[in-house]
Amino acid sequence: MRAHPMAGDTLLAVILGLLDILLFLSGAVSQEGTRTHPWFVAIPIDVLMVAPLAFRRKSPLWSAYAVLLISIVHTSLLLGVSSVVALAMSLYSIVVYVGRKQGLLYLGALVALNTVQTLTDQSTSWFGETLFTLFGLALCWTLGEFVGARRAYDEEVEARLHLLETERDQATRIAVAEERSRIARELHDVVAHSVSVMVVQADGASLALPTNPDLAGRALQTISETGRGALGELRRLLDVLRNDDGDSEPRVPQPDASALADLTERMRAAGVPVDLEVDDDLADLPAGVSLGLYRIVQESLTNTLKHAGTGARAEVRVRRDGETVEVLVRDDGAGRARQLEGASVNTGPSKKTPRLSVAGGNGLIGMRERAHVYGGTLEVGPAPAGGWQVRAVLPVRLTP
């Protein structure tokens, strides 16, 4: 009925019309037990009586007043019970879908029509029929008020939920923009460092070329490798760069994978025991990848400190495997991680928008953006043995 309202109302109208037609065919509509009206008069009026009910939710006013006019003829010819039911449904529909003002006008029209019919029929049981009619109208009005209030409440809740979803989406977009701006500033420093190295090596090569060609050749090789790395960083910088709002944050040297030991020491001092295991061959990682690796570990340990609970331990594993480097941060806490059980974050180099099903703050958004910038993957979710884990895989070599 809610998914296809017109189809449901049409079905109700058909059932009600068939009931009147069956009563007519059985002779039950005649006071003497015989049909007093030909079928080509009675059946079309029965159909017209229930037809407007199919539109009672799409056009409630038009449908209700059409029912009111046709019911005069239908009731006068004593063609069945559909007129009474249709009038009750019409009053209910106006109260629910239009409002009290129009409902009062329609109720007044019904009372006036019933009064005229009662005076015209001059029935001896007019008092009982009037009480029954008033009781039925009051019941329909009360039911309409209840359903209308419930419908208005549901619409208000839906509007508020839509507003909250819009605000959440806006907050997410703002967080993404801020994080990308931060990444862009960091990549700016990385590219500036690479260019500085290239300039120094080029000066050294020009000086050593006449006397030490081998040294000049090594300097040129360093320039070539640094330039390729800088091209990759620059491409990613252009991907995430946003307009600078004029903030003058001080430029400081950016950390890399070699600073993970200092980071874990600070976390231990803050009260979180951390086991660190790092491969030795991380020194030649591209500066941007090394920085992204550090930031992912930093954010993961910060979340452990905030949400894992008292007494939680954490472990950090950084392993290099060929052309990729994997970082795994896991804790054994019972804090917020258990409340998010079943959620995960999966991102990759695909052009499709990654799915973020963890109801987290800006930290998860930042890790997702870093993994996406370098063409890596990020998985966040409950650890198999309990607690929470973050696993990221980043490429070692960046293509220009």
Rank of each mutant, 00 (worst) to 15 (best):
R2E: 10
R2G: 13
H4A: 12
P5K: 10
G8W: 11
A13G: 08
I15Q: 09
L18Y: 03
D20Q: 04
L25E: 08
G27W: 01
V29L: 01
V29C: 01
V29H: 00
G33F: 09
G33K: 09
T36N: 05
H37A: 09
P38K: 00
V41P: 07
P44V: 07
I45N: 07
V47C: 11
W62G: 14
S63V: 05
A66W: 02
V67P: 04
V67E: 03
I72R: 02
T75D: 11
L77P: 00
L77E: 01
L79K: 06
S82H: 04
S82I: 04
S82D: 07
A86C: 06
A88E: 05
L91M: 15
Y92P: 05
Y97T: 02
L105R: 12
A109K: 10
A109M: 14
L113V: 05
L119G: 04
F127P: 00
T130C: 01
T130D: 04
F132T: 03
L134W: 12
C140S: 13
T142I: 09
Y153H: 14
V157C: 04
V157T: 03
E165R: 15
D169N: 09
T172I: 11
R173G: 13
A175Q: 03
E178I: 07
E179F: 03
R182P: 00
R185C: 02
L187Q: 02
L187F: 04
H193G: 06
S194K: 11
V197F: 08
V199N: 03
V199T: 09
V200M: 04
A202G: 07
A205N: 07
L207T: 12
N212K: 02
N212H: 04
D214W: 00
L215H: 06
L215M: 05
E225Q: 11
E225F: 07
E225R: 12
R235Y: 08
L241C: 00
P253S: 13
Q254D: 11
Q254V: 14
Q254F: 08
P255A: 14
D256W: 09
A257G: 06
A257I: 15
L260W: 13
D262W: 11
L263C: 08
E265K: 10
E265L: 08
R268I: 00
V272D: 05
E277T: 14
D279Q: 11
D284G: 10
D284S: 12
L285N: 09
A287N: 12
S290R: 13
L291P: 09
G292A: 15
E299M: 10
L301H: 03
N303W: 02
N303A: 11
T304H: 07
G309Y: 00
V316W: 06
R320A: 13
E323H: 05
V325E: 10
L328H: 13
L328C: 03
A334K: 00
E341A: 11
T353H: 08
R355F: 01
R355N: 05
V358L: 14
A359V: 03
G360R: 04
G360M: 06
G363I: 03
E369K: 06
R370P: 05
Y374F: 15
E379L: 00
G381P: 00
P382H: 06
G387P: 02
W388E: 02
V390W: 05
R397H: 05
T399K: 06
